[in-house]
Design a protein around this nucleic acid. Structure first.
Lengths: 169, 169
DNA sequence: TCCACATGGTTGGATGTCCAAGTATAGTCC
DNA sequence: GGACTATACTTGGACATCCAACCATGTGGA
């Protein structure tokens, strides 16, 4: 699975699409497929760096989100909408982080429906160390040059906004 | 989970990164996070279109790969390397496609280790109809304009190649 | 005040992905 | 020819994601 192929399989697919008469859709299809594959490659790289910390990317994201809040706590529903994942994914992540002693569940002071996720000191410490590792081992050299990074941020922000991720900035 | 947020959470994260002293890593982090989120959005859109066909994207990819081969058949290992997924993922997909009558498993004529996946006529028909739906409902208007598509293809191809996905073209 | 509807979170189920390990078959080299 | 190594596929396990359904709590209007 990790031997390099002799040719770019996505470029091949694009040519196949064109040959079948989907000229107009071939390039968008290739771009979409490339995003899928790039995401997979980045995820593997990131999870490799996080493995020594016994964290997955989704748990890391939650931990870091908490670390960026003023009090180190957040309602589950708020975490769900900020991370843009299903509430059940948050439940799952919190279960595991809590088992590892990295977060607590606390009742909300006034709304009894709500559960607050609260960073423990171990959690805060691990978030800091994992972030240092990711910055050092992934984000310092992603493989995209400066212009690429700018282009990606711009293009993908517009796409996400148009897809309804967030309102006009 | 699907209400638009008032602001771009990735841009916020980028600002947080900068404020914590990771100026050089903030933009690459944002680009990587944006790729992750974009992949998720595209996947949801695609799976929505494939749902009426009782297909997932990974099964669709396998079906389409077979449809593009001369004889409509391929060793499992070859599918694994072309789709760039783990062999167990191919086993999983083939199990389900076979249960749905869309592919068969055939022994390889000379190498008895190898299993060939072979498209059935139902499988070929479904692949065609699913591709038409995706082209019509997703790839005709992805939300990326022509320049964006070109930029994505170029930037991501370079990244994938550098990551060892395929040899120099 | 009370009922209908909205919101917050969990449980159970289906899928996909990866890794580790195990079995079977091929190929290589002495 | 026989042992060693490589390749092909499967099984079992750990995770993450989504959806549907369910229970508890809040809110708002008649």
């Amino acid at each position: 699975m990790d031997q390099p192929l002799p040719r770019d399989p996505i470029a091949d697919a694009q040519r196949n699409w064109e040959r079948r008469g989907w000229e107009a859709q071939a390039a968008p299809m290739a771009a979409v497929t490339a995003i899928m594959r790039t995401q997979q490659l980045l995820m593997l790289r990131i999870e490799g760096v996080l493995k020594p910390f016994a964290l997955t990317f989704s748990r890391y994201e939650l931990l870091t989100l908490l670390a960026f809040t003023r009090r180190g706590e957040l309602p589950m529903s708020r975490a769900s909408s900020l991370l843009q994942v299903h509430p059940t994914s948050v439940t799952n992540a919190v279960d595991r982080l809590q088992a590892a002693g990295l977060v607590d569940r606390t009742p909300h002071p006034v709304d009894r429906r709500t559960t607050l996720i609260r960073l423990t000191s171990d959690g805060r410490d691990l978030a800091r160390r994992a972030t240092e590792a990711l910055n050092r081992e992934v984000f310092t050299d992603t493989g995209f040059d400066t212009d690429d990074v700018d282009a990606l941020i711009r293009i993908l922000a517009r796409f996400r906004q148009q897809a309804g991720d967030f309102a006009v900035d």
